[in-house]
């Protein structure tokens, strides 16, 4: 008889393994990190500039 009262056993992962990005540098020194995953024909590009000011 199926036990519907008690929950199935659960487990907590010891570690989460995320995909490791490939990395290389452009000739001008810009570092590029590339993660290939998923099956959708979609690419997301983010440019991060090392500049910021709270008051600009």
């Amino acid at each position: 008889m199926l036990d519907r009262i008690n929950p199935p056993e659960i487990s907590i992962p010891n570690a989460i393994h995320l995909h490791t990005p490939q990395s290389f540098k452009l000739k001008n020194g810009t570092p590029v990190y590339n993660i290939c995953e998923g099956t959708q024909e979609v690419v997301k590009i983010e440019l991060i500039f090392a500049y910021a000011s709270l008051f600009s």
């Binding site: 519907r4 199935p8 659960i10 487990s11």
Partner: peptide, 18 residues
């Protein structure tokens, strides 16, 4: 849900369908 706990999802959803 984390995939190692997938059965919890089946347990919950099937019971409220029942």
């Amino acid at each position: 849900i984390p995939s190692q706990n997938i059965e919890t999802g089946f347990w919950l959803e099937s019971d409220r369908m029942l």
